[in-house]
């Protein structure tokens, strides 16, 4: 017997013995069934749309509730590839001045979705991101920053607030990863002017009389953040019964202090040399004073006269 024949016989023998073994163990030679099982867990995967993390929402004024923000104030939260719906949970930090981190104002100055106050503790927004499916595996919803109140005196510059979001499904107790947005807002340099009182009466005066420069008008900047110059202008004194009867604007004088004489008023706005200092967070209102005096020219027709003076802030 050749070696080839011997090998063939050995192989046949091996095959026969294997099949006998299978039959003995109860296996059939066709229609084998394998049952696979898997338990798909619940999951939520939170992302910002386009993976955007910096949101420049626009400009704001100090001592004002600012709401005219750009489209970056609408923050889109996505669930990419999860399988259950999730409520958007939100919390934030203080607004921080980028140039000076010690200058901060509170998280609660941010209002989102019209009337909800942002807090430093996680809060359910009530906004739900639906469950993604195999056909549509990205689902999203939005949170809008509606307004930011910038407190008085906060200096001009960029301010950043970090707002963190995550998604939570209460039924399954599933929580997503946390994602944080840097919301950036530029606070304008602003000067304000508030005056008190808005009338001065010189009472009854005889022609040729000089009233000392001592009628006070107080000037205030309540909550601005920039130093301002004060300009002044005025009109002629006009008889209230007969507007044709007038005497000159320059008969009114002004000064920053009480004095006998002051600078004659002019009809064109003129710098007074009086400034209103820039308010600050610790000193949110600044003030200054301007005093007025009056001379009645000889021969002035008797009666009630009035004059209009304008004080302007400029910064």
């Amino acid at each position: 017997m050749t070696s080839t024949k011997a090998t063939a016989i050995a192989l046949i023998g091996l095959l026969l013995s294997t099949s006998m073994l299978y039959i003995a163990k109860g296996y059939t030679s066709s229609n084998q069934l394998i049952t696979a099982t898997a338990n798909v867990l619940t999951a939520i995967y939170a992302y910002f749309a386009n993976n955007q993390t910096n949101y420049y929402i626009g400009t704001a004024n100090p001592n004002a509730i600012n709401s005219n923000f750009n489209t970056n104030s609408i923050i889109t939260i996505q669930d990419r590839g999860g399988n259950v719906a999730g409520n958007i949970i939100i919390y934030g930090g203080n607004w921080i001045n980028q140039a000076n981190n010690a200058l901060q104002f509170g998280v609660s100055n941010t209002i989102y979705d019209s009337n909800k106050v942002l807090s430093s503790t996680p809060t359910d927004t009530g906004v739900i991101v639906p469950a993604p499916t195999i056909q549509s595996y990205i689902k999203s919803n939005t949170i809008t920053i509606s307004s930011v109140s910038v407190p008085p005196g906060y200096p001009a510059g960029n301010y950043t607030q970090q707002i963190t979001f995550y998604l939570k499904n209460y039924t399954y107790g599933t929580t997503s990863n946390q994602i944080t947005a840097n919301v950036i807002m530029y606070v304008n340099g602003v000067c304000y002017l508030y005056i008190y009182p808005n009338t001065i009466s010189f009472n009854s005066l005889a022609p040729g009389h000089y009233t000392p420069v001592n009628s006070l008008v107080s000037l205030y900047d309540n909550g601005g953040n920039t130093q301002a110059q004060i300009f002044i202008s005025g009109g002629n004194w006009i008889n209230q019964a007969n507007n044709a009867l007038q005497f000159g604007v320059s008969n009114t004088t002004y000064n920053s202090i009480v004095s006998s004489y002051g600078t004659p008023l002019t009809s064109t706005p003129t710098p007074t040399g009086i400034t209103l200092a820039a308010p600050s967070p610790t000193n949110p209102s600044t003030s200054n004073s301007i005093y007025f005096g009056l001379h009645i020219p000889y021969g002035t027709y008797p009666g009630y006269y009035k004059q209009q003076i304008y004080l302007y802030t400029s910064c």
């Binding site: 002017l193 508030y194 005056i195 009182p197 808005n198 009338t199 001065i200 009466s201 010189f202 009472n203 009854s204 005066l205 009628s215 008008v217 300009f231 202008s233 005025g234 004194w237 209230q240 009114t252 706005p269 007025f292 009056l294 009630y304 006269y305 009035k306 004059q307 209009q308 003076i309 304008y310 004080l311 302007y312 802030t313 400029s314």
Partner: peptide, 27 residues
């Protein structure tokens, strides 16, 4: 130059008086 914006308010007062108005000026 200077631009001005005046706030117009009418005050009536029977005396010799100054009405102080206010506004903003922009250089």
């Amino acid at each position: 130059g200077i631009l001005i914006a005046k706030i117009i308010n009418n005050v009536t007062y029977n005396a010799t008086y100054v009405s102080i108005g206010y506004g903003v000026a922009k250089q």
